[in-house]
C-alpha cells in the first residue's frame, strides 16, 4: 500500500470537503493556481473549484473579517494563513468578531470556519516566520484550537471542526508537511497507536498497548514524530519505555481519555514547541496534578522552547527550539527523579 504524506492527506481532505459541500470555500493569499498556497496545500484546487477559491491581497485582518462574515451567512470558509506569525493581524477579527458572534446575539449563531496556519520553526526562517502561536489563541470563548498530526486523518478532523459550528484555528507544523502519515495503527516496526477519547481526539502510541510505560509523553502533533524518534532511542539505548499521547484538539482539551495511562506511568513529560511561559502544557499539567499527587514517584516535567525570539541562524535557532536531545534528556531526568525519590 502506498503511504500517504501528511500534505497529500491535507490536500485531499480539503478537496473532498469541497466536493461534498458547496458551502466550503478557501480564502487566502496566493491560494489560487499556479501557486496553490505557500506550502502547496491548495494545489490544483482553483482548477477544480474556480469560484470557491478566493485569492486575496496581503490583508490578514481584512480577509479573516471577510471569512467571518461569510461564515455568519452560512458559508464554511477555510482560511489559509500563509504563516501563523501573521495571525496577530487577524487577532481582532477572531477575538472580537468571529468568536464573539457565536453567542453575542441572544441566539447561538452557527459560524463554521477554519483558519489554517503554517506554524513553527526548524527551517531557519527567523523571528517573524517561525513562531508557534497556539498559546495566544487558547482561553478564548467559542474559539477552538487544533493541530495537525501524523496520526489524525485530516478529512475526519476538518469535518469535526466544521461540525463544531464555531471558529476553529488549525496549526500546521511546517516540518511535518512532507512526512508520511502513520496509518492503520502502525508507526513502525516497534510502535503502534490507537485512538482514545471523544472524537478520537488522543492518539496514543506505544510498543504494547496494555503495558505500563516508564514515562508518558504528551505533545501536540507538530512534535509527535520527533517524540517518536526519541521514544525509539530511549527503548533501544536505555530500555526506557515511553508512550506518546497526541491530541488533535488542543483547546479546550479533555484529559479523561489519557488519565489511565498517565496514572499508570506516573511520570509525565509535556513537550511543545512554543516558547516557555503560559504554555499549553501548563494547563494540561494543572489538570493532571490531582490524579498524580498521591503517587509516590509521580512527576510532571514541562519542556518548551526557550524564552527567546527565534534566531534566523539555523545553529542559534536549534539552541532555542525544543529538539530531540532536549526531549531525550528530559525523560532521563524524570527517570532520575523517580529513582532518587
Amino acid at each position: 500500500m502506498k503511504q500517504e504524506k501528511i500534505n497529500e492527506n491535507l490536500r485531499h481532505a480539503i478537496h473532498q470537503l469541497m466536493c461534498e459541500d458547496e458551502a466550503v470555500v478557501v480564502i487566502g493569499e496566493d491560494v489560487r493556481e499556479p501557486y496553490g498556497g505557500a506550502f502547496k496545500i491548495n494545489k490544483g484546487l482553483s482548477d477544480d473549484f474556480p469560484d470557491r477559491v478566493i485569492g486575496t491581497p496581503i490583508s490578514e485582518e481584512g480577509f479573516v473579517n471577510m471569512a467571518s462574515g461569510m461564515a455568519i451567512m452560512g458559508h464554511k470558509p477555510i482560511v489559509d494563513m500563509m504563516f501563523s506569525d501573521f495571525t496577530t493581524l487577524s487577532f481582532d477579527p477572531l477575538l472580537n468578531f468571529a468568536s464573539k458572534s457565536v453567542t453575542m446575539y441572544g441566539d447561538k449563531l452557527d459560524l463554521s470556519m477554519i483558519v489554517r496556519c503554517a506554524n513553527g520553526g526548524y527551517r531557519g526562517y527567523g523571528p517573524t516566520h517561525s513562531q508557534s502561536m497556539q498559546k495566544y489563541f487558547m482561553g478564548i470563548p467559542n474559539l477552538s484550537v487544533y493541530e495537525l498530526s501524523p496520526f489524525h486523518d485530516n478529512y475526519y478532523v476538518f469535518n469535526r471542526m466544521l461540525s463544531e459550528k464555531n471558529p476553529c484555528i488549525f496549526f500546521e507544523e511546517k516540518i511535518i508537511y512532507s512526512q508520511y502519515r502513520y496509518e492503520n495503527g502502525v508507526i513502525d516496526e516497534l510502535f503502534n497507536y490507537s485512538f482514545k477519547g471523544d472524537h478520537e481526539n488522543w492518539a496514543v502510541a506505544s510498543i504494547e498497548e496494555n503495558s505500563v510505560p516508564d514515562v508518558l509523553i504528551l505533545c501536540p502533533g507538530g512534535l509527535a514524530s520527533m517524540c517518536m524518534k526519541v521514544a525509539e532511542k530511549l527503548i533501544m539505548a536505555d530500555e526506557i519505555e515511553v508512550k506518546v499521547a497526541v491530541p488533535s484538539k488542543l483547546y479546550p482539551c479533555g484529559i479523561e481519555a489519557i488519565i489511565e495511562d498517565a496514572v499508570a506511568a506516573g511520570k509525565i513529560l509535556i513537550v511543545e514547541e512554543g516558547t516557555s511561559g503560559h504554555t499549553w502544557g501548563e494547563g494540561i499539567a494543572v489538570k493532571l496534578y490531582p490524579y498524580l499527587n498521591k503517587q509516590k514517584d509521580g512527576a510532571i516535567e514541562l519542556l518548551s522552547s526557550s524564552d527567546s525570539i527565534i534566531p534566523a541562524s539555523k545553529y542559534y535557532e536549534s539552541q532555542v527550539l525544543v529538539g530531540e536531545q532536549d526531549i531525550y534528556e528530559s525523560v532521563l531526568k524524570l527517570m532520575k527523579i523517580a529513582k532518587e525519590g
Binding site: 516496526e189 516497534l190 527503548i235 533501544m236 539505548a237 530500555e239
Partner: peptide, 10 residues
C-alpha cells in the same frame, strides 16, 4: 524475518 527488535543492550 524481522518480527522482533532488540534493544542495544539486548
Amino acid at each position: 524475518t524481522a518480527s522482533y527488535k532488540l534493544s542495544n543492550q539486548a
